[in-house]
């Protein structure tokens, strides 16, 4: 922020996880405040959220797209209405996206009063994202007042409840007695003012990776609570998520090689 007029950064996974932590932990602690937010989506990913099959994801499927846009809409609402950051939706354009699909998506996003741009930087480099750059510069002109999902002085349980209801669309947070006792112990030992860092599946707003789209009324179960006294937050592990992932059946390592002095197979 000392070296340039515009600094672009990214937060991992979806806006319910990476961006939430960026706002509620990183920004709260560092004083950084984003002036604008870019929400990235692809038409094929939205079709997948709408129940589309991966094998046919490149074929036109307006019904799946329309059903899957709810995921985008929920993220838009979270960024705009909860984090309170002006945003633009950027569609990472693929040649398989059809005109009808683009038109449908555009209409849906514009109906929310949010700007949407098509970006072709993958094929065209910086020139392909000029519309996005102009949209971002315009957003940055507006004064903003970023808001956190929960205040510092909420209790640890109130914090996870606020994240679950406001960001995940959940109707309740559950935990067995051992976990509840641990949260009470941390609250009473003087760690109650720490932010909560949620570890959960990145594939869904819920803790069930198979629930695509924008599920509501689900329940968030806190499986484990970890104190990070040096980093100054409380990790709440929700649902089945692993802090040590495994490799898939065909790991990409099988395609990575070294041929004629060059590394191949990374992408």
């Amino acid at each position: 922020m000392k070296l340039a007029d515009y600094v672009v950064t990214e937060a991992g996974f979806g806006a319910d996880l990476g961006a939430e932590k960026f706002i509620d932990i990183k920004c709260r602690k560092s004083g950084l405040r984003p002036s604008a937010c870019v929400l990235v989506a692809t038409i094929r990913a939205l079709k997948y959220h709408g129940g589309g099959d991966l094998k046919t994801i490149t074929e036109e499927n307006l019904a799946a797209l329309e059903a899957g846009i709810v995921n985008l809409e929920k993220h838009v609402a979270n960024i705009r209405d909860v984090y309170n950051i002006p945003l633009v939706v950027s569609i990472n354009h693929f040649t398989s996206d059809t005109e009808a699909e683009v038109a449908l998506l555009r209409a849906k996003v514009e109906a929310m009063g949010v700007k949407i741009v098509l970006a072709t930087h993958w094929a065209d480099g910086g020139k392909g994202a000029v519309d996005l750059a102009h949209a971002v510069v315009e957003l940055c002109e507006k004064p903003t007042e970023v808001t956190f999902v929960y205040p510092d002085d909420a209790t640890l349980l109130e914090k996870i409840n606020l994240i679950a209801s406001r960001i995940y669309g959940a109707s309740e947070v559950t935990a067995d007695s051992k976990v509840r006792a641990r949260i009470k112990e941390l609250q009473e030992s003087g760690y109650g003012h720490f932010p909560v860092c949620v570890a959960k599946t990145q594939y869904s707003f819920s803790t069930d990776a198979a629930l695509r789209g924008a599920p509501t009324g689900h329940s968030i179960n806190i499986r484990e609570v970890r104190l990070s006294a040096g980093a100054e937050f409380i990790v709440m592990v929700c649902g089945e998520v692993m802090t040590m992932p495994g490799l898939p059946k065909v790991p990409s390592a099988e395609r990575i090689d070294f041929i004629d002095g060059k590394v191949v197979g990374l992408f």
């Binding site: 950064t9 979806g14 806006a15 990235v40 959220h49």
Partner: peptide
């Protein structure tokens, strides 16, 4: 100086 945050919809394969 302006900070711009890039984020995304829920990840998919």
């Amino acid at each position: 100086s302006k900070l711009i945050l890039v984020t995304a919809i829920s990840p998919t394969p």
